[in-house]
Structures are given as C-alpha cells and as structure tokens.
C-alpha cells in the first residue's frame, strides 16, 4: 500500500521526470556504473586471489590488500550513487523487482565480507613472519569472488525480471 504510494511519488517527482526526459542520462549513468563495476571487481579479484594465495604470493599480503581496498570502497560509492539515479528514474521497475532486492542483499553480504577479511590487515604489521592467510580466510576469499559474480549477474537480470 504505502510502498506503491512512495513509488508513485518518486516517479512523478521533477527529478525522476527529468532523468527520463533527457535521453542520454540513463545510458551514460549505466556506462559509469559498469566502469565502477570493473574497478570494484578488478580490485576485488586481485586482492581476493592474493588472500587465497594464488596471485602475487611473493608480495606481502598487507601491501596488496591495502593498495586495492580504497579503490573498492570508492568504486562502491560511485556504484551506489549511479544506482540511486537509476532507482529514481524508474522506481516502478526497480523497487518492486525481487532480483533487485536479492542483489542489494548480496552487495551488503559481499562488501561486509570484503571489509571483515581486510580489516585485520589494514593496520601495519606488528610482527614479522609469514603473512599467509588461514584456510578459512582463503575459502572466504574465493567465496567473495563468487558473490561479486552473482551480484553482476543479478544486476543484468533486473532488466529481464519483474
């Protein structure tokens, strides 16, 4: 009841109408969204593969993780902003779409995992020695690569599902 009122209100707002009326806005915002996906997923892949121990394993783990985390966080901010523009433009297609809500739940899960896996590594090392990740961390790193893939798939499917 109330959610359909909110959707109708967003849809009729001057901002929503303007985004739909200026034809280049949606494709441009979607293109920026994809560029940000490449930055987030590229950085996630590199640092998760390092966590898993199969990429650049002769480089210190902390260095790799600390190098790429800011790119992931900034890309996420761009993704949330461009995503918001798409929601405002077509709330009637997005906010009632179950694939969209699944994607949002997966984004929260994947980024929480990203943060939990990296948080212990963000401070400078207090002791020298092996900095190889433990087995559960390695497994979670693989899982998070998989989760980001599912997020991308869900994103594409929003356009095809109700």
């Amino acid at each position: 009841m109330s959610s359909s009122l909110i959707i109708a209100w967003i849809y009729a707002s001057p901002l929503s109408t303007a985004i739909r009326d200026i034809l280049w806005v949606i494709p441009t915002v979607q293109s920026i969204h994809i560029i940000a996906i490449t930055v987030l997923f590229g950085s996630a892949l590199i640092s998760d593969l390092r966590l898993a121990g199969v990429f650049a394993s002769d480089e210190p783990l902390r260095g790799v993780v600390r190098r790429y985390y800011p790119w992931m966080r900034n890309a996420l901010i761009v993704l949330l902003c461009t995503g918001l523009v798409m929601i405002i433009a077509e709330p009637d297609r997005v906010l009632v779409n179950s694939t969209f809500w699944l994607k949002m739940a997966l984004v929260v899960t994947a980024f929480s995992m990203t943060w939990l896996l990296r948080r212990p590594l963000m401070r400078p090392a207090s002791h020298a020695g092996s900095d190889d990740a433990s087995r559960p961390v390695k497994a979670l790193a693989w899982l998070s690569i998989g989760l980001w893939c599912v997020v991308i798939i869900c994103g594409r499917w929003i356009a095809y599902t109700i």
Binding site: I34, F41, S43, L45, I46, C149, I152, I153, R156
Partner: peptide, 18 residues
C-alpha cells in the same frame, strides 16, 4: 541472452579492471 550478457559483463570487469 541475459546469461550471455552477464558473462560478458563479468569478462568486461576483468578486462578493464586489470
């Protein structure tokens, strides 16, 4: 088609990301 598009986007993310 959407499945091909999804794999295409994952590929793009790795190509441009790296």
């Amino acid at each position: 088609f959407p499945m091909l598009e999804s794999v295409h986007v994952i590929g793009i993310a790795i190509v441009y990301g790296t």
